[in-house]
Structures are given as structure tokens and as C-alpha cells.
Design a binder for these strands. Structure first.
Lengths: 335, 335
DNA sequence: CCAACTCTTGACAGCGCTTTCAACATCTGA
DNA sequence: TCAGATGTTGAAAGCGCTGTCAAGAGTTGG
């Protein structure tokens, strides 16, 4: 294991002081062109790369943006990761992802790890961290939340109205004539689930339809939960004509349940998802869904963090959901 | 922004020297229980957390495992990330993911970023980095490759035979009686594609079937590539009865092409994928596919890295692909 | 021609921690 | 009782870098 070169090695070879090398590296001051030349030569010949850890210590900035996420393999957050990555590109900052698995304790541990590494800022994606906890952290560190709001920190969050999104999906179904619409909800502990359920009810009310709690079942935002919930529902009643799933993964699970029973989509049953995962465009049939622009959210979060690090507080960023019309819904037919 | 406490603050409050605090933190030496107590109290009351950056500088170990990946949102590598995360849990090391997007130059840049941060080891997931480049790095740093082999570094890689995997999928199709089997390959620049194509041909040969290059089209390992390739193929000929896709995403794209033309799966066309993405169990119909245990691969890579860091070279780890039988294939019917 | 500047440069302290070394305090056993 | 062993602690140097400060060289203008 060969030793990495240090700034001192460079200084020695170039016959200048370490300070000068540092100045050239950081552009902190004017340096005569002959010294600059010899330093650059020395750097090239040694293949020298500054030790970011040491820079971090000296400058008091780690150049790390901590990202507390829920699952590193989540298809939805995956798109957000891409946005964050790109938004941070060429800023000198780098993201460090730690997963919290939707458990407040693990999320707190993630934050611990990140602060132990002296992250310069933290982006929190969803999760169940307590508001007070986040507020306290926000006092000592720039924080941006995505997909969840924190009272008193509205200006540091990227937010999409889940309720509006749900209404978009539901109105579409209602306008197609559906009246008995089931909802496969997310976990009831999850704010997004709650908001989407609220949107479901609001749309129903808008069309003067009574809310029927029997038509709502709880899943877990995963395919399997959607499958199970749909099977259960199907075994109990058969009078509904459309399903509004709490997210695309749930919709895909439901799709399988329908397939198993030979119920055709969209001829016999209309199906609407939420998120617009990349895969939603490739289900059979392609899934009509409410789009959340995951990548844009990530990019916006990155931009906001960068702003915050420069001391600028920007106005709250609100992105909007939109309906992506594909082929899993059809006008209600009277059979 | 309140200042973070330092080890010195703790020392002062506890009335001991910084060395003693450090010893307690690291368990480096025996410390009398009264001092230990007062130090622990001081740590608790200050909410002190050691600065990992400073520890890194002093110890010469960053406790970062760099992970060069191709896309942070990749569904296949996502599972590997999970394995890495878990394999590294409680080791004190943390992964740092940087994406290379299958471009050697970006991958080299990723490595640069990682070495500038003095990663203690690097895990390379797939990619197009030149063998020599990796070999050179391996001299100064523990390196583990996943899903790609490097000549001379076999003992530091987690490998799955793509050829064997392809043969598994193909034999299944052949045993079902299919004789005209199309292959939607991955990018020809990609080693996995090449190996899988080799397996495709080998299986054909095994069954005494002539290789027909017209039945092979190149995709890009993405849904869209699969869709396009399948559409093109379908527009050119209709005499094949099965498709062996280079990966699940390609298969899903092909599935959509078939759906568009009203070709039923598996009645009219059998379809086999590769990878066994989580989503493969929820396509319509659920996809028969060759499984690569992504999470196990990640866990194995993490374990290998940890071993390497302790100076142990283990024997090459070879995991094996397996066939996951679902519902997208059926026995050839004479129509 | 010299005071007053302006540039460029190096010495040095310090970021927060680890680790070696030596000092001091105790404890053994002969 | 004392030499030697053992245990616990602090001082200080150093990890690789930045940033302040001051010195020395070179300019300018009255």
C-alpha cells in the first residue's frame, strides 16, 4: 500500500512553502506564475490529490450533505437520489445516504452518523422523525425536508400536496363514471397515506358520494401489501368498479390480484396508482397514475441546501402533482 | 449555529487530560473507574460526539467504503446496495455511493472523489473501468468488484456466471419445446450482455439448434430498449415462440410490445427475463426469470471488504444464478 | 532619494483527535 | 524495608491542511 502524497511533499519538490501550495490549490491569493508552474508540475508528477478529510478539519466544513432516506433501494426515492446527485454535481459537496427504514430510532441513528461526520447539511426524505427533533437540529445545521413538512420549517422543505394528488386521481375515476371506488391505502401511521386518504374522501364528497369505510383497506406501500389487500377486498365484495391505490407499488400488487381472478383491467376494473414510478409505464396495461416528480424534488432539495449553505433562505418550494393518463382506466360501462 | 463540543471540552469538564478521554472512547487502555465515570458524565451532559473527520486524520482511516456504482436508482443494484449497507452495519464503516453511469470517465472521476476522501476500500459494481486501472488501484487500496471480474484480481470479486444463468433460462425454454427463441440482448459493449449472449448460443448448440443472428436484437438493459427491440423484431417476423430477454427490464419492455399487438403471454409467446428484480414477481403475468441474488452479492462484497481490511484474503466468492419459475412461459403448442 | 505602499511569500498556530513516551503512584515479594 | 514490577495518567508531537501575520522585495510619487 503506497503512501498517498501530501501537500508537504508537493511543497518540497516545488521548492515553495506549503502555504503557497495551498494558495494555488484554493485560489486564495495571487501567486507568481513561475512558482505556480513548478507547483503544478510537482502536483502532476506526484499525482497528488488533496486529502479532503484534512481540508475538512482545517476549514471546518466536511463537504458532505447527509441524506437520511428510508430505503436505499426504494424505487420512488431512487429518482429523488438522482435529482440530489445531479443538483449537487460540481458543487464540491457530495451526498452520503443513510437509510432509516421508516423507523424513528433508525432515522435518529442515521442523523447521528451524519453529524458525527460533521455533514454540512442534511436532507431528510420522508420518515417518522419527530418535528421537535428536526427543529432542534435545524438550529445548528441547514436542513431540508422532502416529502414531509415540519411546522416552523416550511421554508426549508420541498413539498407536494398529497391530497391534491389524490383528488386528481379520484376525479379522473369519478369523471369516468365510477361511483364505487375502493382505496388501497398506505400504512395509517404514514402522513402521506393519511393525506391521500383525505384526498380520496374529499373527491368523493365533491361528487356527492358517501364515504364507505368498507371500501378502504390498508396496505403497506409495497406490492405485497397491495396484493393482499386487493385479494381480501375481492373476497368480500364485488360491487366496486375501480381501485385507487395509495401508490404504484400497491397498484401493481392489486393488478396481480385482479389477474389471478381473471378480472380485466381496464375493462372490468379501472386502476389508478400514485407516484408514477418509471415502471408504471410498463405494466400491463400501462398504469394511469398521479405523478410526483421525484427527480425534480431531489434537484430542488439540492438547490435549496446549496442556497442555505450560502445563507440564503428561499421561498418554500412547492411542486405539483399531475395526472398521467395511460391505459388502466376506462369509462364505466353498464353491464 | 451552535459549536459542536470537542474532546477537549469533555476533558476540561471531567478534569482529566484529553488523552484519557480518548482512551475511554477507544478502549485503548485501562482507566480508573472514577475518571471513567466523570468522563462519561461529561460526555452525556455535553452531548459530545467525536468528530469522525478528526479521528480519520489522526488514525489515517476514514472509515468510508467507497462504492462506485452505475446508477443510484438502478433496481438491480439497489438490492446490492441493501446488501452492502447491511453487511457494513455495526462495523463502523459507512458506504459512500458515487455513480459512474456506465462511462469509464465518470467512473474514474467517482474513484477520484472517493480516494480524495481517503476511502479505506472501494467496491466497484459493474462498469467499464479498464482492468489495468483497477489493478493499479488495487495495489494501494483494498478493492472488491461485483458483477465483473478483473484478471489477476479474482480473489477480490463477487462473481456470478452470466453464461450459466443464460443457459438456465434457455434450457427451460428449450425443454418446453421452443425452438425459435429470440434474444433481446443488452448493449454489446457490456460484458454481462456478451456473456449472456454466449449462454444463449451455448444452450442452442446443446439442443442442436442453429444460431440465427436475425433472432437477436440489441437493447439497452432498459424497458424502453426492450420495447423498441421487440417491436422491431415483431415487425420483421412472427415465427418465433419465445423471447429470452437480457434482463428483467428488457423483458418488461418486450411485454408491453406484445401487449400492444395482442400477443398473449405465455399462450402465444413465452418470455424469460434475467435478474429477478423485485418487480418481476408482479408483472402480468408474473415473470419467469433467472435470479441473481443482488442482496447476497452486496452482503458478500461487504464481508469481503471487511476481511480485506483486516488483511485476510478469502477464496473467490462465487454465487450461482437460479431459475425462478413463474407464469410467463408455457409448453410450446402446435397451432 | 526616501517614505509609503503594494505584492508575494514563508513561518506558525491550530482544526480535533490519537499515540508515544515518560512520570508518578502503587503494589509485590524477598 | 526497598528494588523492581505494574498500573494509571498527562504532556507533547503529529495527522494534512488552512489562514493569519509579518517580513522582504519591488513600486510609486512627491
Amino acid at each position: 500500500m503506497s503512501q498517498a502524497r501530501t501537500l508537504n511533499d508537493v511543497a518540497k519538490i516545488a521548492n515553495v512553502s506549503p502555504s503557497t501550495v495551498s494558495r494555488i490549490l484554493n485560489g486564495t491569493a495571487v501567486v507568481s506564475s513561475d512558482k505556480r508552474k513548478s507547483v503544478e508540475d510537482a502536483i502532476a508528477s506526484l499525482g497528488y490529490r488533496p486529502n479532503v478529510m484534512a481540508q475538512a478539519l482545517a476549514k471546518g466544513r466536511s463537504m458532505i450533505i447527509g441524506v437520511v432516506t428510508q430505503a436505499i433501494s426504494s424505487p420512488f426515492y431512487g429518482e429523488t437520489f438522482v435529482g440530489i446527485e445531479q443538483g449537487l454535481a460540481n458543487s464540491g459537496y457530495h451526498p452520503m445516504f443513510i437509510s432509516g427504514h421508516w423507523r424513528a430510532d433508525e432515522e435518529r441513528e442515521a442523523v447521528d452518523i451524519l453529524t458525527a461526520r460533521r455533514s454540512d447539511a442534511i436532507i431528510i426524505l420522508g420518515g417518522n422523525l419527530e418535528d421537535e427533533y428536526i427543529l432542534k437540529m435545524a438550529k445548528s445545521l441547514p436542513i431540508v425536508t422532502v416529502g414531509r413538512s415540519v411546522e416552523g420549517l416550511e421554508r426549508q422543505s420541498i413539498y407536494i400536496s398529497q391530497e391534491d394528488g389524490a383528488m386528481l386521481g379520484m376525479r379522473h375515476l369519478l369523471e369516468l363514471g365510477h361511483r364505487k371506488i375502493a382505496h388501497l391505502a398506505g400504512p395509517s401511521t404514514h402522513r402521506d397515506s393519511i393525506e391521500r386518504l383525505t384526498g380520496y374522501k374529499a373527491a368523493l364528497a365533491e361528487f356527492g358520494i358517501a364515504y364507505d369505510p368498507d371500501l378502504v383497506l390498508e396496505g403497506n406501500f409495497q406490492e405485497r401489501g397491495g396484493l393482499l389487500a386487493a385479494e381480501l377486498l375481492l373476497s368480500r365484495r364485488a360491487d366496486f368498479t375501480a381501485i385507487f391505490a395509495a401508490n404504484d407499488q400497491t397498484a401493481m400488487g392489486a393488478r396481480l390480484a385482479l389477474f389471478r381472478r381473471g378480472i380485466r383491467v381496464p375493462e372490468d376494473m379501472s386502476l389508478v396508482g400514485f407516484d408514477d414510478l418509471f415502471a408504471a409505464g410498463y405494466t400491463t396495461p400501462p398504469l394511469t397514475t398521479v405523478r410526483q416528480p421525484g427527480e425534480d424534488m431531489g434537484a430542488a432539495a439540492a438547490a435549496m441546501v446549496l442556497n442555505l449553505l450560502e445563507g440564503h433562505l428561499q421561498k418554500p418550494t412547492t411542486l405539483t402533482p399531475s395526472l398521467i393518463l395511460r391505459e388502466s382506466t376506462s369509462r364505466l360501462r353498464f353491464s
